[in-house]
């Protein structure tokens, strides 16, 4: 799932420079200056390039509301009560000084309340507050529909409460471990098959499938599976990172250390990931297209094409070896 998206601060932006061409998907190129969130991959290239500091990477999910002790909340609130009272008295007094007192006390009340557990608009505390206002006895002028709308809007990007960070980390660590074990056991099964140790091979195959079951469940419970559009975006982001940043370094280091086999496997993967990123983006652009598309996988290097080539464009393998999807 995407973690962040880019937002442009129009007050700082001069609209005439770098983000337009560093963006891999054209999300920054819009008529109204608002970055197109449906195209944004969350890669941060635009924010890094912007000389005006006008682009921020905004998280989809904010951290939990900080836990506040009851004592802290009540001592801040009793000060806030005093400030509100002072605001109220200042409203009743005349003169510029007391107008300033009103505003000053209002700002102080805001800040004290913010630190008493109301920093984030989408936190549970805010939603509880809004709901309590709906339930209470209100005058006929109470903007009930607006409060309902607020609750609906804020619930959409509600902060995930109570998923303890540690448990989330553990789920992701277990996912990585299980995913790794799955591939490892397949490698061991292939080896065992070649050696004719068929019982061992069978066990490795079964165990590798078991690890897949575990990995998928952990990933799901961690809340990492989004809509298909978002998953495609995540695919583009992941593959782009690999072919642009990760593999170029790996290839260079393998070359320097003289490890030819590593250099080759990294190079194949790097080129294949680039085609994957491209295909994911294409699938995202045509997400509502219903006409069936076929993909052909090169079993040697992992290249994917949309028609069978004579030879694999990356590793040169014969087109007859390609597997159809």
């Amino acid at each position: 799932m995407l973690k962040k998206y880019a937002v442009r601060n129009i007050r700082l932006c001069t609209k005439d420079c770098l983000c337009l061409y560093v963006c891999p998907t054209g999300a920054t190129d819009t008529e109204n200056s608002i970055i197109d969130i449906t195209k944004c991959l969350g890669c941060g290239d635009c924010a890094e390039a912007c000389p005006s500091g006008a682009i921020s990477m905004v998280p989809f999910e904010y951290p939990n509301q900080q836990e506040k002790t009851d004592e802290v909340v009540s001592s801040l609130k009793s000060l806030a009560i005093s400030k509100s009272k002072q605001e109220s008295i200042a409203i009743g007094l005349t003169g510029t000084l007391f107008k300033a007192f009103q505003i000053s006390n209002h700002i102080q009340t805001e800040d004290l309340i913010r630190e008493a557990g109301y920093m984030l608009p989408q936190s549970e505390n805010t939603l509880v507050f809004l709901n309590s206002q709906l339930e209470g006895n209100q005058s006929k002028d109470f903007p009930k529909e607006k409060v309902k709308l607020l609750i609906e809007l804020l619930s959409k990007n509600k902060v995930k409460e109570k998923m303890k960070d540690k448990t989330y980390e553990n789920l992701m660590a277990a996912f990585t471990g299980e995913a790794e074990a799955n591939r490892k056991y397949i490698a061991y099964a292939i080896k065992a098959e070649k050696e004719g140790k068929l019982n061992a091979a069978k066990l490795f195959r079964a165990a590798s499938d078991a690890e897949t079951i575990h990995a998928l469940k952990h990933f799901e419970v961690a809340g990492k599976i989004g809509s298909t559009a978002n998953n495609l975006k995540d695919g583009v982001a992941g593959e782009t990172h690999e072919y642009k940043e990760m593999y170029p370094d790996f290839v260079k280091e393998a070359k320097e250390s003289g490890n030819k086999a590593a250099e080759m496997t990294f190079t194949f993967a790097m080129k294949a990931e680039q085609t994957h990123a491209h295909l994911y983006q294409e699938a995202l652009d045509n997400i509502d297209e219903t006409e069936e598309v076929f993909y052909f996988l090169c079993p040697i290097c992992g290249n994917i094409e949309k028609s069978v080539p004579d030879k694999c464009s990356i590793c040169g393998a014969s087109g007859s070896k390609f597997i159809k999807y």
Partner: peptide, 28 residues
Amino acid sequence: PVVEHLDSMKEMSPLQISALCTNLARGC
């Protein structure tokens, strides 16, 4: 510490709730 125990929301005056709301507006 002289802690006064207050029952959170019920104690808030309308003006204080108004500050809570402008604070949340700033947050948005």
